[in-house]
Nucleic acid binder design. Structure first.
Lengths: 215, 215
DNA sequence: CCATGTGAAGTTCTTCACAGCT
DNA sequence: AGCTGTGAAGAACTTCACATGG
């Protein structure tokens, strides 16, 4: 439980998967779960799950399994999920609006506190209870709402400039959905989500499959 | 140019990034690009880019760089982007509809040929020119349209059953946006995209940052 | 002289397999 | 007897640094 705990990047990426299944088990009233069962539900190997969990302490009992509640709370603490984290979404196009309307973030303690877009017909309106503001007022919006995570859902051409504004306002974590590589200082965390990229990766598998089939 | 070329998984994930930048360079009329410049634009290290590219042949000239057109075509062929790939989207909620409306897939030669949802008020309507059909007719829809990629944008509770239907219809590549681990045969490719997961990973970085700041 | 292509080293991540605890 | 936690091995991935070719 030290503050200098260093969890590997790959492991951190899986913690949300485990958390999701643990929450489900918890809701069902299940008290303990084996690494085998939790791993299966999460889509990973049991040895990998055990190694992941062992990195931040021992929440399992040999011969029994893991205490669902304890483990869930532990992961929740590690990823900061015990506290509300405010999110600002930049870009109120198809994707940005879909995100604002998306249920499920609230359950995880994320709160969308702002939505930003340049379109005059959108500025001032509300989407799912969130007011749309103009990028000119983005820094102000971020500061007044206390947003700490920014989601970039703009066209690629606008992504870098809005991220620069966000950084100026003190944002240090960015979820980038624009199909472009963002340039940020080393201490800023960026995660990229790109549907087109994912489809292209799947397309590669399809292409290879065809080769194999024709062999 | 052998058919047994084996490109590492991590490399394949980056090919779309390179392709994106190469297409931009191509549009600008740039003839050659150095690994340094292309890597910078793509957000990777130049040595990594060179290693990636060297895996499927030599498209560079020492002392000069890479031929933009040639390299672009080569990557396009590898990921199967020279051919139209038909996509069916399952789930016409916020996300599914945003995807159907999303411009940019067409440029990459992806065509949305079907949209599936259970909601009676949606079935039979059109979204961006694509007719919404009921899951009962999904197998038929997949077969008649020739869809080869399926995007799962349903609630988690419905994801596994729709994927099972898709597999039955012959789908072998799935982009899963539902927050649940899908179980599929080993020869089916699945890519998971989960916003909540990404936000949680960023949240971890925020949590760590706080610890450091308070040190 | 310049930038690619690549052995070699280094790092990170995963799996194996079993000792150790309950 | 059962399941975790982990050393050790293995696999995958990235970076270094320079020989090589244009």
């Amino acid at each position: 439980m030290s503050t200098t705990e260093q969890i590997s990047g790959a492991s951190i990426g899986r913690l949300p998967l485990y958390l999701r299944e643990l929450t489900e088990l918890s809701d069902k009233g299940v008290a303990t779960v084996s690494s085998e069962a939790l791993a299966e539900a999460s889509g990973v190997q049991s040895a990998l799950l055990r190694r992941d969990l062992s990195q931040f302490g021992s929440y399992g009992t040999r011969g029994v399994g893991y205490n669902v509640q304890q483990l869930r709370r532990a992961i929740l603490r590690i990823i900061g999920g015990t506290r509300v984290r405010r999110v600002i979404i930049v870009g109120a196009g198809n994707l940005g609006q879909a995100l604002v309307r998306h249920a499920g973030f609230a359950d995880l303690n994320f709160k969308v506190v702002g939505l930003v877009d340049v379109a005059p017909e959108l500025v001032g309106t509300e989407v799912n209870g969130v007011v749309v503001t103009h990028p000119d007022r983005m820094i102000e919006t971020i500061r007044s709402t206390g947003a700490e995570l920014a989601v970039v859902a703009t066209p690629a051409s606008a992504a870098q400039e809005v991220v620069d504004l966000a950084l100026e306002a003190g944002i240090t974590s960015v979820l980038n959905m624009a199909p472009v590589a963002l340039h940020v200082p080393a201490d800023v965390a960026v995660r990229n989500v790109d549907f087109a990229q994912e489809l292209q990766i799947l397309s590669y598998h399809q292409a290879r499959r065809r080769v194999v089939e024709h062999a």
